[in-house]
Computed example of a mutant assay.
Amino acid sequence: MTALAAFGITLATFGFMEFWAWFMHKFVQHGPLWFLHRSHHVRHPHPVERNDLFFLIYGGISAALFITGDNGGRWWFWVGVGIAAYGTVYFFVHDVLIHGRLRFWKKSQNTYLRALNMAHKTHHKTTGRDGSAEFGLLWVSPKYLQLARQQAQKKKAAAPDLSR
């Protein structure tokens, strides 16, 4: 397996995972597996949620692909790398930045990350199985990017000019 092929498979898998996560979230987690995902939509005092089982499922799939992937010699090893990379980004963006489950990354002033946070907050406006919107993680609807830009411009205009 060439390095370019391995990189291409990893990148394609990472990109596909955004679609897969959206699909699974909208049609499976808010569908037949709501009994697991519901824990993510309600406030609770526990540090772990039933919804965290999805991390274990995808981690297990990724690990199986690593173990059987001949240490990078088989194409599916690199699929496992793509799944693991997406899961890592998902953890830091969704659990750490958006939900603050670990308190080392404070809210960002980055326009894209603020837009992503707004979209996710829209998703959580409902605590029920139905009526949610914005099921993806990394793809952000242009309307939220525009809102984040507008907020940043308002904040900038309202800030006192300390350069004088």
Rank of each mutant, 00 (worst) to 15 (best):
1 M>T: 10
2 T>Y: 06
2 T>D: 14
3 A>P: 08
3 A>Q: 11
3 A>H: 13
4 L>M: 11
4 L>S: 14
5 A>R: 13
5 A>G: 03
6 A>T: 00
7 F>C: 13
8 G>C: 11
8 G>Y: 00
10 T>K: 03
10 T>D: 00
13 T>I: 02
13 T>S: 09
17 M>T: 02
18 E>D: 12
18 E>Y: 04
20 W>G: 12
21 A>Y: 12
23 F>H: 03
27 F>A: 02
27 F>E: 01
29 Q>G: 05
31 G>W: 00
32 P>F: 12
33 L>V: 00
34 W>E: 01
34 W>L: 02
34 W>N: 00
35 F>T: 06
39 S>K: 02
40 H>A: 14
41 H>N: 02
43 R>Y: 11
43 R>P: 08
44 H>F: 01
46 H>I: 00
46 H>W: 13
49 E>Q: 14
51 N>F: 15
51 N>C: 14
53 L>N: 11
54 F>W: 11
56 L>R: 03
56 L>N: 06
60 G>A: 00
62 S>G: 15
62 S>Q: 04
62 S>C: 09
62 S>M: 06
64 A>Y: 08
68 T>M: 10
69 G>L: 07
70 D>Q: 12
71 N>Y: 13
73 G>C: 08
73 G>V: 05
74 R>E: 15
77 F>L: 01
78 W>M: 03
82 G>Q: 05
82 G>C: 06
86 Y>A: 01
87 G>A: 05
87 G>K: 00
88 T>P: 00
88 T>W: 07
91 F>M: 07
92 F>H: 09
93 V>A: 04
97 L>R: 09
97 L>C: 04
99 H>F: 11
99 H>D: 06
99 H>I: 09
99 H>C: 10
100 G>C: 03
101 R>I: 07
101 R>N: 12
105 W>H: 07
105 W>E: 06
107 K>Y: 14
109 Q>K: 14
110 N>R: 07
111 T>D: 11
115 A>F: 05
115 A>V: 08
116 L>E: 09
120 H>C: 04
124 H>N: 02
126 T>L: 09
126 T>D: 10
126 T>R: 06
127 T>A: 09
127 T>H: 11
127 T>I: 07
128 G>Q: 08
129 R>F: 01
130 D>N: 12
130 D>S: 08
130 D>V: 07
131 G>P: 05
131 G>M: 03
133 A>M: 11
137 L>V: 15
138 L>G: 09
138 L>Y: 10
138 L>K: 05
140 V>I: 10
141 S>A: 13
141 S>R: 13
141 S>T: 07
144 Y>M: 06
146 Q>I: 10
146 Q>K: 15
148 A>M: 04
149 R>S: 14
150 Q>W: 06
150 Q>D: 12
152 A>L: 13
152 A>Y: 03
152 A>I: 05
154 K>I: 06
155 K>W: 03
155 K>M: 10
157 A>Q: 12
160 P>K: 12
160 P>R: 10
163 S>P: 06
164 R>P: 15
164 R>D: 13
